[in-house]
C-alpha cells in the first residue's frame, strides 16, 4: 500500500468527497474531475481555462473604457474650441464627469457584488475544507495542532469578511463618491480626502493579512526554509503585479512557498485547486478592468482631458482596491489550507 493510497483512503474516510465544490471552480478545469487531479496538472488545466477566457474578460472591460475615452475626446475637443473662462463651458466637464460615472460605475458596482460573493464563497468553501482537514489532522495524531490552526483560520476569515462588509466596501463606495465629486467640482478640492480613504482601505487589508501571517509564523505553525531565491522572485512578481496590497501579499507568499513542498495529500490538492479556481475568475475580471482603465486614464491628458483622465484613473484604483480584497481573501484561505495539511 503506497502513500497515495493511504491518503486516498483518508480522503474518503474523512468525508472529503462530500465537500461541495462551487460550479465556477469546475468550469475553469474544462470539465476534468478535480478530485483526481495532481497539483501540477491541475494548475496546467487552470492555466488553459484562463487563457481561453481571457479574450472574453478583455471584451467586457473594453466597453466602459471605450465609453470613458470617448467622453474625454468629446470634452477635450470642446475645450480646445472655447476659451476657459466661458461660463457655459464650465458645465461640460460636469456633464463629462456624469457620463463617465454612468459608464464605469455601473460595471464597478456589479463587480462589487460579485467580488463580495466570491469572498463569501472562498470563506464558506475553505471552512468546510478546513473542517475535513482538521479531522484528518486529528486522525494522524495532531488534534491540538489541527484545532489551533482551524480556529485561527476561522477567526481571521470571519474577521476579514466582517471588515470587508462593514468597513471596506462602504469605504470603497465613499472613495468612489469623493472622486466623482472632486472631478465634478474641479480644482482638486477633494483629492486629499480620496487619497486618505484609499490609504485607509489598503492599510486595513494589509493589517489583516499581516496579522494572520504573523500569528501563524509566531505560533510555529508554518515553517520557513524555502529557497531564498524562489521567495525573492515570487515576492517581486506579486508586489509588482497585484495593485494596492501587492506588498503585503508578497510578504505573506513566503509562508505559502515554504509550505507547498508539504502539499501531498489528496484533500489538500483538491482544496488548493478549487480555491485557486474560485479566486482566479474574479481576480482576472477585476485585474483586466484595472489595467484597461489605468491605460485609458494615462492617455486621456493627450486628448485634453486632464480632469476627466484623473477621474478615470481614480475609478481604476477602485477596481484595484476590490482586487486587493479578493486577493487577500484567497491568500488567507490558501495559507490556512497549506498550514492545515502541513500537520
Amino acid at each position: 500500500m503506497n502513500e497515495q493510497t493511504i491518503y486516498r483512503e483518508q480522503y474518503v474516510a474523512s468525508g472529503a468527497e462530500s465537500i461541495e465544490i462551487p460550479a465556477e471552480a469546475y468550469d475553469l478545469f474544462g470539465g476534468a474531475d478535480i478530485n483526481s487531479l495532481e497539483l501540477d496538472e491541475g494548475f496546467r488545466l487552470l492555466g488553459q481555462g484562463i487563457g481561453q477566457g481571457l479574450g472574453g474578460y478583455f471584451k467586457q472591460a473594453a466597453l466602459p473604457a471605450v465609453s470613458a475615452l470617448m467622453v474625454v475626446l468629446l470634452c477635450g475637443m470642446a475645450e480646445t474650441m472655447f476659451p476657459e473662462r466661458e461660463r457655459t463651458m464650465k458645465v461640460l466637464p460636469l456633464v463629462g464627469t456624469l457620463a463617465i460615472t454612468a459608464a464605469v460605475c455601473g460595471d464597478l458596482f456589479a463587480l462589487v457584488g460579485s467580488g463580495r460573493s466570491a469572498v463569501e464563497t472562498l470563506s464558506t468553501f475553505s471552512k468546510s475544507l478546513l473542517a475535513t482537514l482538521a479531522a484528518t489532522g486529528a486522525a494522524v495524531g495532531a488534534p491540538g495542532g489541527a484545532s489551533a490552526r482551524y480556529l485561527a483560520a476561522i477567526v481571521f476569515s470571519d474577521a476579514l469578511i466582517t471588515v470587508i462588509d462593514r468597513v471596506l466596501i462602504p469605504a470603497l463606495m465613499a472613495y468612489v463618491l469623493v472622486c466623482v465629486a472632486d472631478a465634478a467640482i474641479g480644482g482638486d478640492t477633494l483629492g486629499g480626502l480620496a487619497k486618505f480613504l484609499k490609504t485607509a482601505v489598503v492599510t486595513v487589508l494589509t493589517l489583516i493579512i499581516t496579522g494572520f501571517t504573523i500569528y501563524l509564523t509566531v505560533s510555529g505553525i508554518v515553517a520557513g526554509g524555502a529557497d531564498a531565491l524562489t521567495i525573492k522572485a515570487t515576492k517581486t512578481v506579486i508586489s509588482n503585479t497585484v495593485p494596492v496590497v501587492g506588498g503585503a501579499i508578497a510578504d505573506a507568499s513566503e509562508t505559502v512557498i515554504a509550505s507547498t513542498r508539504l502539499v501531498k495529500n489528496t484533500t489538500g490538492v483538491v482544496g488548493i485547486l478549487a480555491l485557486a479556481a474560485i479566486a482566479v475568475g474574479s481576480f482576472l475580471r477585476l485585474g483586466v478592468r484595472y489595467l484597461v482603465l489605468k491605460t485609458v486614464g494615462a492617455v486621456s491628458p493627450l486628448a485634453g482631458g486632464g480632469r476627466l483622465g484623473k477621474l478615470i484613473e481614480n475609478l481604476a484604483g477602485a477596481f484595484g482596491i476590490l482586487l486587493g480584497m479578493i486577493a487577500a481573501s484567497a491568500l488567507m484561505a490558501l495559507i490556512a489550507v497549506v498550514a492545515m495539511i502541513s500537520l
Binding site: 466597453l63 465609453s67 461640460l92
Partner: peptide, 21 residues
C-alpha cells in the same frame, strides 16, 4: 460608439450641452 456598443444615452446629454455652449 455604435461599433463599440456604447450606450447612446451617455452621450446625448454631452452633445446637447456642447450645442448649447
Amino acid at each position: 460608439a455604435d461599433a463599440a456598443g456604447v450606450a447612446p444615452e451617455h452621450f446625448s446629454a454631452l452633445y446637447k450641452a456642447l450645442a448649447i455652449s
